[in-house]
Simulated scan of single mutants.
Amino acid sequence: MYKPNFDTVHHVAIIGSDYEKSRKFYVDIMGFSVIRENHRPDKGDIKIDLKMNDETEIELFIKAEAPERVSYPEAKGLRHLAIKTNNIEEDIAYLSYQGVKVGELRVDEITDKKMVFFYDPDDLPIELHE
């Protein structure tokens, strides 16, 4: 019997509301490179494909009229994006220096690894996990 091989995330799609703020955050601060950018007036958005690494991309959709994200109480669906890091303290210092909202460093009670949440310009939670 066929067994699928689902072992790599190809991309994560994120919706932002402000082109300049989102592009600065994901390209200049996070360091993702632009693969392609498409202005799509028929869909009312701008789609920027970003390279995170050799296997994973971020699809960044800029849509000024998108509804606000439900955060508290949390709604069903994707909860957050988590990024692996090898030096969480330096990453926290860097993000804070860049003016990014960063939460309190804590230890994951299940994995016993350091973790912290920070937020993109639209308050999307992003986790750093060491």
Results as ranks from 00 to 15, higher is better:
Asp54Tyr: 08
Val27Asp: 00
Pro67Ser: 08
Arg106His: 12
Ile14Thr: 00
Leu78Cys: 14
His11Arg: 05
Lys51Met: 14
Val9Asp: 04
Met115Trp: 00
Ile46Thr: 10
Pro121Thr: 10
Asp123Ala: 13
Asp18Ala: 12
Glu57Ala: 12
Asp42Ser: 15
Ser71Glu: 06
Glu57Lys: 11
Val116Trp: 01
Ala64Asn: 07
Ser33Asp: 10
Met30Ala: 06
Asp112Glu: 14
Ile92Met: 03
Val116Ile: 10
Pro4Gly: 07
Arg23Asp: 09
Thr8Leu: 13
Phe117Leu: 13
Arg79His: 10
Val100Lys: 02
His11Glu: 06
Tyr119Glu: 03
Val102Pro: 00
Arg40Ser: 09
Glu130Met: 09
Ile15Lys: 01
Asn5Arg: 07
His80Gly: 06
Glu130Ala: 09
Lys63Ile: 11
Ser71Ala: 12
Asn53Lys: 08
Ile29Lys: 02
Ile62His: 01
Ile48His: 01
Leu128Ser: 00
Asn38Met: 14
Leu78Val: 15
Glu65Gly: 12
Gln98Met: 15
Leu95Thr: 03
Asp42Phe: 10
Lys76Pro: 05
Leu128Lys: 00
Tyr97Cys: 10
Val27Asn: 01
Ile126Met: 03
Gly77Ile: 13
Leu78His: 05
Glu127Arg: 04
Pro125Cys: 09
Ile48Tyr: 00
Glu68Gln: 15
Pro67Gly: 05
Pro125Ala: 07
Tyr72His: 15
Lys24Arg: 15
Leu128Glu: 02
Ser33Tyr: 04
Ile14Asn: 01
Glu89Pro: 02
Asp18Tyr: 09
Pro67Gln: 07
His11Thr: 02
